[in-house]
């Protein structure tokens, strides 16, 4: 019950893209990078993680399955945000 799934506040950030505020929060459930992402629009929240696919380099994927394209797009936006704000 008392397990904290989320990291602390400094592991959260928001940015604007395509007129929508995207709020990202890092999750403390894996040694790898996992984000819980919510939107100011009606889009459903999504969890994305880096995955090591066989036929390409590591890419972003949705957890659970079913929203691969969104995951890849959001992952790219997050990487872009982090690379310019670190």
């Amino acid at each position: 019950m008392d397990r904290k799934l989320f990291y602390e506040q400094d592991e959260q950030f928001s940015f604007e893209a395509y007129g929508v505020t995207i709020h990202c929060q890092k999750l403390d459930i894996s040694k790898d990078v996992v984000y819980h992402v919510t939107f100011s629009s009606n889009r459903k929240p999504i969890v994305i993680a880096r995955a090591r696919f066989e036929e390409s380099e590591a890419r972003w994927t949705s957890i659970p399955e079913g929203r691969q394209k969104e995951a890849e797009g959001l992952g790219a936006l997050i990487e872009q945000y982090l690379s310019t704000n670190d």
Binding site: S30, A51, R52, F53, E54, S62, I63, E65
Partner: peptide, 19 residues
């Protein structure tokens, strides 16, 4: 396969574990 992408058994289990 995870999200229609080919992954190793180990990677599949890791992603399912997060799920």
């Amino acid at each position: 396969y995870y999200n229609a992408q080919k992954v190793t058994h180990a990677e599949f289990l890791r992603l399912k574990g997060i799920e």
